[in-house]
Each structure stands twice: as structure tokens, then as C-alpha cells.
Amino acid sequence: MGLIASEYQQSLHSEPSSRSYLPPEIASAILRYGAIVGCEIEHLRHAQRCMDLAREKILSCEGENRSFPSGHVLIADQLTGSKGRFLRHWHAPEGGIWMVLTIVNTLLPQQAQLYSLAAGVACCEALRHYQVNASIKWVNDVLINGRKVAGILTETMRGPTSGEEFFLIGIGINVNNSSFAPELRNSATSMAEFSGHPFALEEVTARLLSKLSWNIGLLHYAEAENLATGHGLDNDLPHPLITVWRALSDTLGRQVRFGFNVMESPQFTAKAIDIDNRGQLLMRLANGQMLRENSGEIVYL
């Protein structure tokens, strides 16, 4: 845990590439907003499911009339009961990063729905820092050459005592692990498999945390700026996070199949055109009609 924390502090100070174009006072403001990320880091050898454990910790904390720290990070070396959406299998052996970041949501709804995108951007940026050719598939899957290297699952819970809305952002990255369940063999990959060499897990974890800190800070900064300048949150001005997402994603311009649960119930095929400032995917059907979706999944065709 100490190693991750110290690497994290170094990452925060040694990673100016994505913000070099910003005036220092803006970069500082963004870093201040994001500083809560990793305020507490817990590292476990193994756990059944980080998400469940984070929930238990919130309940236990509130049961003792204490506030659960926003920005708390729970990391496990391996998970024995992990699962993805719709109870899909998620293989989480040693060698990967399996973590949950818990944030108390203080954003307005228009911005809060961008947390999922911010987490995807952070993962993708962390991988690219190591010259791993990763890209984002809407909403926030991270792929290398079409194979999934990182997945994000976000859940919400309401603190029973505090009434706070907790966002539990579960992130899994295949870093050095290269054994996958048979059904995932052709659709999953790892950083090591792509690069041909292993990575220092603590360093990658720290890099991920610094990217999360920056991108979550960016969300808060964008909200504050839009409110302060009177533009409001439903404007069409370029959103800094959406701009970065577009640059990292290979979704736009692709022919996709869409479904709320696309594996079991595909709904239609369309061309992905753009995402809006709420992160919604705009798609064009073959007949030219446009659709805008705020939830669901796509597969590339």
C-alpha cells in the first residue's frame, strides 16, 4: 500500500503531458478538485468482490456515525467472486489491477453522468502512458486491437445515515495476467501480452490513480466554470472531458450493434456519429434516422 501511495504522489507531480497546454492556475484548480482521489488507499491480498467490500465499509462507517472518505480506494491483488454487468464473468487473477474508487457525488446530474467516461479516459490514458495502443469503446471499455484490456463498472448506493450518494467505480485492468477464462480467450488481452514484457503493478496503479484524479478534477472544474460564467450545464460549448474522450476513442465513425444488453438482446445496427456533452452516443440508422442513447452497450461490426 505504501508503495502505491508514494508512486501515486510521484505520478501526480511528474505527469504534465496532458495538461501542459493549460495555464498553471487552471491545472492547479483541476488538481485541487481531484485531490480527493486516493485520500485513503487500502490494499488487500485478495477479496471476493471489491464492490461488495466497499459497500460493507460504507455501511460499517456510517453505522459508527462516521463519514466515509470520498476518494477512498480499495485494491485487491486478486478477486474470487468478481462479475461484470448482467452477472457476466470477470476473471480477476493476480497480475491485474482490481480496484474500487468510492466518490461522494457532489456534481449536478448533467456532470455526474460523466463519471463513467472520466474513468474510461483515465484508464486509457494510463495505458497509453506505457505506449500501450489502447482506445475507448463507448461507454468506457478500454480495448487493445479490439480486445478488452480494461473494464469499468459503476454502481451507486445511498448512505443510510448520511444520505450521501456514493459512486463506486470498479475498475479492472489486465496488466501482467495473461490467463483468461476460455470464453474470454479471444476477446480479452493484457498490457503484458500486447507489449511482450511485464509492468511494475504498483507503478501502473499509481499512474491510474493520478489519471483518475486529473479527470475527475476536470469534471468538477468544468462544472464550476460553466456555472460561474453563466453558460449553465446544458450548453454546446466543447467540454474538456468529452474532447479528450473523442481523441482516445475509436468508436466514432464505426458501424456498431447496440443493445441494452447487447450480447443477449441486440436491438439495432447503426453508425456511431458522435457523443454529446452528456456522453450520450449519437448513432445513425441505415435509413438516416438519428438516435441518441444514454445507456447500453455496443459491439463493433
Partner: peptide, 11 residues
């Protein structure tokens, strides 16, 4: 409730 791949239990 599902919004941007964030699932929220609704009581």
C-alpha cells in the same frame, strides 16, 4: 436505474 453504464439500485 442505468445511466452511462452506472447502475443504481432504486428503492
Amino acid at each position: 436505474m442505468s445511466l452511462m453504464k452506472r447502475d443504481t439500485p432504486v428503492s
